[in-house]
C-alpha cells in the first residue's frame, strides 16, 4: 500500500462516522443491558430467595418452619420487617415447634473466587448439622464437589464445634484432613482433587463457628421462642 492510499484510509473525514458508530452502538448496548437487568431483576431476586429458602431447610434436617433473628445491641431479637442487612440467624423448627437448629450465611476465599455457604448449627449439642453452597465459582467437576460429593457432605452430619469452658472460643479448631484420615469429630475430611476448595471450606467453618458459636450458645433459649 502506498502513502496516499494509506492516508486516505485513515483520513480525518471518517472520524465523525467512527464516533457516530462507536457512541451509537455503545448507547444501544447500554440500553440493552439496562433493560435486561430491569426485566430480570425481580425474577433473579426471587430465584435467589428460593435457593436460600431451600438451603435453609436442607441444612436444618427435619425443620418445617423458620423464623429470622438478628443481633441488635448485643441482644438476639426477632427480625420485624425487612431489616437493614444485619447478619441474619434463621432458626428452624420441626413439626412439634421444637428448635432444630440455627442457619447462617458464611463466606470466604475459595480457589477461584469467594465461596458463599449456609451453615446449620445445633446450639444445644454444639455441632454443625448441615452445609450448603449458595454461590461458588469453583472449577466445575473438581472444586464444585464441595457441593455434591456425598462423602464430603457426611462431614456435616455432626461436626463438633464444642465451646471451651469459658464459652468464648472453640475447644478444638476445625482442621482440614486429607481424604480418609479423619479421626476426630472436629476434623473435616477433604476431597481428593479438590484440596484447595475443601481447605477453604474448613477455613470458612472455623471462622464462622468461632465467631458465631458463642453467640448461639449463649442465646440458645431465645431462639426457641417462635
Amino acid at each position: 500500500m502506498n502513502q496516499p492510499e494509506l492516508e486516505q484510509m485513515t483520513a480525518a473525514p471518517n472520524s465523525w462516522h467512527m464516533i457516530r458508530a462507536l457512541a451509537g452502538i455503545g448507547l444501544m448496548c447500554a440500553l440493552l443491558i439496562v433493560s435486561t437487568y430491569e426485566l430480570t431483576f425481580d425474577i433473579i431476586k426471587q430465584n435467589k430467595a428460593e435457593v436460600l429458602e431451600r438451603a435453609i431447610f436442607k441444612v436444618l434436617p427435619g425443620a418445617e418452619s423458620k423464623a429470622i433473628f438478628i443481633v441488635k445491641d448485643g441482644q438476639v431479637e426477632k427480625l420485624i420487617g425487612d431489616g437493614n442487612g444485619e447478619t441474619r440467624y434463621y432458626a428452624g423448627f420441626d413439626a412439634n415447634d421444637d428448635l432444630v437448629g440455627v442457619a447462617l450465611e458464611a463466606g470466604g476465599q475459595g480457589f477461584q473466587d469467594v465461596i458463599h455457604i449456609l451453615l446449620g448449627f445445633n446450639p444445644e449439642k454444639q455441632i454443625i448439622i448441615g452445609m450448603q453452597v449458595l454461590e461458588s465459582k469453583e472449577t466445575p467437576g473438581l472444586g464444585d464437589k464441595i457441593e455434591k460429593d456425598p462423602a464430603f457432605q457426611k462431614n456435616f452430619e455432626a461436626l463438633d464445634v464444642a465451646l471451651s469452658d469459658d464459652g468464648s472460643s472453640l475447644k478444638n479448631e476445625i482442621v482440614f484432613k486429607k481424604n480418609g484420615t479423619k479421626s476426630n469429630p472436629w476434623e473435616l475430611d477433604g476431597i481428593t482433587g479438590a484440596t484447595i476448595s475443601s481447605k477453604a471450606i474448613a477455613a470458612i467453618l472455623q471462622a464462622s463457628a468461632s465467631q458465631n458459636m458463642p453467640v448461639l450458645y449463649k442465646n440458645r433459649e431465645k431462639f426457641k421462642q417462635q
Binding site: 428460593e50 461458588s136 465459582k137
Partner: peptide, 20 residues
Amino acid sequence: TVAEYLIQAISIDIHKALGA
C-alpha cells in the same frame, strides 16, 4: 451480559454450574 442475566433468571443452578 444479557445471556448471563437470562441464565440467572431461568435457573440459578445452571448459572452456578457454568460459573466463571
